[in-house]
Design a protein around this nucleic acid. Structure first.
Lengths: 200, 200
DNA sequence: TCAAAAATAGCACGATCGTTCGTGCGTTTC
DNA sequence: GAAACGCACGAACGATCGTGCTATTTTTGA
């Protein structure tokens, strides 16, 4: 659905557009993304950009999926090369932390979550699907750490996933408002306390 | 700056407009708030609404301050009637939790934080001022609990404030996407763990 | 009761929104 | 060489945006 039409080696125009759209959406959110503004940013005509997606909503969905793919590539996939259990879980958190450092000026996935959580439509469904999918991955990694004895056997998997996610929300929130340095310090300290409280 | 022009007893038109604007902004954010849509929601003309604020930005600032005042009234002030220390801190968290229950469909203060954290201008400044003010209140309540021996003497005040705020972000996030019941369960459990880890 | 003042409506403006349509220019395919 | 196709363009559509200006209505104070 989101793959390029042609497997050519050079970047397709659609990918170039999505690169720019992703950056614009980081600042203004998916709702703040306009086709006219995107077109002038890319250096194309409005209709030329529009033709690649067919509707604004499809453009927003494509940008959302771009964010999801980048997040998976940067955060999840590298961690999967770590051994199962706590090492992999901590790698996920470490990669996520670095993702937060690179996304101080806004994360499309998080802003989309707060933009569409109260509405309905394709964007809402896409956000929910993406967020619950990521939560599942998180819980899977936690469950493996429990099975391997790296975390206490009475660990509440859903609760720990919630706590991890909450700390990352705190990181993004504080980094955006007060700067990454202090936010990162608190987040790191909070994670140390979190690991200690669940570790065997 | 944000008080009504006349201290009359019946609700002024400006307050009626702000009531509607606050509800609209909960769904669509402050950036999604339009004067035309607000006017038809209130049942007035566009220019009639516009005249009360002078610009869209001033309207947004007024809505933001409406949210701040309601939050203070609902969360902070009732807790100040509790005795200093841990009782007051736990009252703050309990009121905040109920605030989250009533704002599943979106909280203006939080959506504003994610809308304006990466820009600059009056809205950004207002959000930062409001958020850091609230963080200060939180830290003040925590510091009192430490002084009174309700919390460990080596408590990192800023860190605990961060952890509390992060859990409330997790509550709003999960409640909006997955429903309040499960989100509330996780939040309650996480707070129990949090208190236990800092208590004397 | 009447004038001053405040509040609201009406109208118009330039800009931008998403979208549609027709067209031309390259490249590919017969 | 001709026909088909993919792609981007420019123009235009109706709608809505925020924001002025000018009446008209409503409220207020003496």
């Amino acid at each position: 659905m989101t793959t390029a039409a042609h497997p050519g080696k050079r970047a397709t125009t659609r990918e170039t557009i999505l690169d720019h759209a992703y950056e614009l959406a980081r600042r203004d959110g998916l709702e703040g993304l306009s086709i006219g503004g995107l077109a002038s940013d890319v250096g194309m005509s409005k209709s030329g950009v529009f033709a690649h997606f067919g509707s604004r909503e499809d453009l927003q969905l494509a940008v959302l999926d771009t964010g999801r793919r980048r997040f998976v590539t940067r955060v999840l996939l590298p961690a999967l090369r770590q051994p199962r259990g706590l090492p992999r879980l901590r790698a996920i958190v470490a990669n996520w932390f670095e993702w937060g450092r690179d996304h101080q000026s806004g994360c499309v996935l998080l802003s989309a979550a707060s933009e569409y959580d109260g509405r309905d439509g394709a964007l809402h469904d896409g956000v929910v699907r993406q967020q619950s999918g990521w939560r599942d991955e998180l819980q899977k990694a936690i469950a493996q750490a429990v099975e391997l004895g790296h975390l206490r056997s009475d660990t509440d998997v859903a609760l720990l996933a919630f706590e991890i996610y909450a700390l990352m929300l705190g990181l993004h929130h504080d980094a955006g408002l007060f700067g990454f340095d202090e936010a990162g310090r608190c987040t790191t300290a909070a994670f140390e306390r979190l690991w200690r409280s669940w570790q065997t």
